[in-house]
Design a protein around this nucleic acid. Structure first.
Length: 483
DNA sequence: ATGTGC
């Protein structure tokens, strides 16, 4: 199979490119790329665009297989990919969602400014590290019974309201209100449940983190006001997912699908794209399990917020004010949504893997004050660089099935990063720039070094200029806690 | 991403 090169790519518009269906005879739809010229030059080097072409062969795929500017290689599908398949008989593919089901980001807003907390950054970093368990395989303080894990899987963030970890009010500041109703714990294996029993309220490792940051620049005053953001304000960002439970759900169902595929006469260029029809027995079981794992992840991020609030109160006491949930987005998930294709509304299964939903104004799932603006889109940069808050747009429905990028996107493998980076030196350099890192291992710091990632500014510039989301605010890190 | 690798 031939590699994608620049000659195969047509320019459709500024920041928008296409590999036509004619590139390979097994493509069912074209492959489209959201990128600046420079980002396109970078990503053409690796296999991510070949993976994108593979995605374009999925049974029932509609309109186009897409990647966002933070694209990089992933399991089967590229990370930063979007694929919408026909409902109900098109494919559902766990590889199009990712092993970390409902990996996502939330942002909490405080009533403090960066000046208010400048002398307590070290204390805050230590307290957050103490209160929020992190690291591979790490458990937390909460031990669920087998009845309780089923409740968590069924009800997601709602479980937190009943158990004092959330207010009823804040649930509407979570994508899908923190619960997918198709969840069915009977489709989640005992092993997956066991792995989740003590993992609520833990961030894990890799690129997961808790970050305290301050608002550095506002681009859209009206949207910033609606989201509750202002200059120099301190905010807290959380990036994590469904931990070992979600990973086990993916593992279990990929195994089932790989062997079930032959019954549906599905042939694919890469076995990592394993999929079955959404309305098949295996497809329905996976979707119900995926929804359960997504609910677990929302519950997890909510309990982490409770831990952060406890740390906040310990460090700042009565001067700390409150931490309000601005929004919580998923970026590894599949959703059944309606989109207009060829002028007609269709129900599709939108796979977003390392891609954030970016629905525009008028979307009535949002809290009232966000409806005129569009949904918040939270884009973390790499460790020690800036991050962005954007707002979704109507235009994203036309271009990307209402989707946007999810981060800076890796440019170096973990291996390559470890070779190039001296973690203790990097930690010291960040400290000199006023950023306090608290991490369980130097390895994690090396793998997540800024050099291992694309420049988040140009990734965000791409989504902003192409119109799939609009910039609202930039935030700069003060404290980072990771595994 | 992940009780880290067919």
């Amino acid at each position: 199979m031939h590699k994608v090169t620049k000659e195969h790519i047509n320019k459709l518009a500024d920041y928008f490119w296409e590999i036509p269906k004619s590139f390979r005879e097994d493509m069912r739809v074209p492959a489209q790329i959201l990128a600046s010229e420079k980002i396109l030059d970078d990503i053409i080097e690796d296999r991510s665009l070949n993976q994108l072409v593979n995605v374009a062969t999925l049974p029932g795929i509609r309109k186009a297989a897409l990647v966002m500017p933070d694209v990089h290689e992933g399991y089967g599908f590229p990370i930063g990919g979007v694929a919408a398949t026909m409902h109900p008989d098109g494919a559902i593919s766990p590889g199009g969602i990712g092993y970390d089901i409902n990996c996502g980001v939330r942002l909490l807003t405080s009533q403090l400014t960066k000046d208010d907390i400048k002398d307590q950054l070290e204390a805050l970093s230590k307290e957050l590290y103490a209160q929020v368990p992190s690291g591979m395989g790490k458990g937390g303080q909460i031990r669920l019974s087998s009845e309780q894990i089923d409740e968590v899987l069924r009800t997601g963030a709602e479980w937190c309201v009943e158990h004092g970890y959330a207010s009823q009010e804040e649930l509407k500041y979570i994508e899908s209100h923190g619960k997918l109703k198709w969840a069915d714990p009977s489709c989640v294996s005992q092993m997956a449940k066991n792995r989740g029993l003590d993992q609520l309220g833990t961030i894990g490792s890799g690129n997961h983190f808790v970050e305290v940051a301050s608002v550095d620049e506002i681009y859209d005053r009206e949207a910033a006001n609606a989201f509750g953001l202002c200059e120099n304000q301190v905010v807290v960002m959380v990036h994590t997912g469904s931990r070992g439970l979600g990973h086990q759900v993916a593992t279990d169902h990929i195994r089932v699908m790989v062997s079930a595929m032959r019954n549906y006469d599905i042939r694919l260029p890469d076995r990592e794209l394993a999929c079955v029809p959404f309305n098949s027995e295996e497809g329905k079981n996976y979707f119900k399990a995926m929804c359960s794992a997504a609910n677990f992840a929302w519950c997890n991020r909510q309990i982490i917020s409770w831990e952060i609030r406890n740390a906040w109160n310990t460090v700042f006491g009565e001067n700390g004010g409150q931490l309000d949930l601005m929004y919580d987005v998923a970026h590894n998930i599949a959703k059944v949504e309606k989109h207009v294709i060829d002028g007609k509304e269709e129900k599709v299964i939108v796979h977003r893997k390392g891609a954030t939903r970016s629905f525009g104004s008028g979307f009535d799932e949002l809290p009232d004050e966000y409806i005129p603006i569009g949904q918040p889109v939270i884009i973390p940069g790499s460790m020690g660089t800036c991050s962005y808050v954007l707002a979704g747009t109507i235009k994203s429905y036309d271009l990307t099935f209402g989707s946007c990028c999810h981060g800076a996107g890796r440019r170096l493998s973990r291996r390559a990063a470890k070779k190039q980076v001296n973690a203790p030196v990097l930690k010291e350099q960040l400290r000199e720039r006023g950023i306090y890192i608290e991490a369980g291992s130097f390895r994690g710091i090396a793998e997540e070094a800024p050099i291992a990632y694309k420049d988040v500014n140009s990734v965000v510039e791409t989504v902003n200029c192409s119109g799939v989301a609009k910039k609202v605010a930039k935030i700069k890190p003060l404290v980072v806690v990771k595994g």
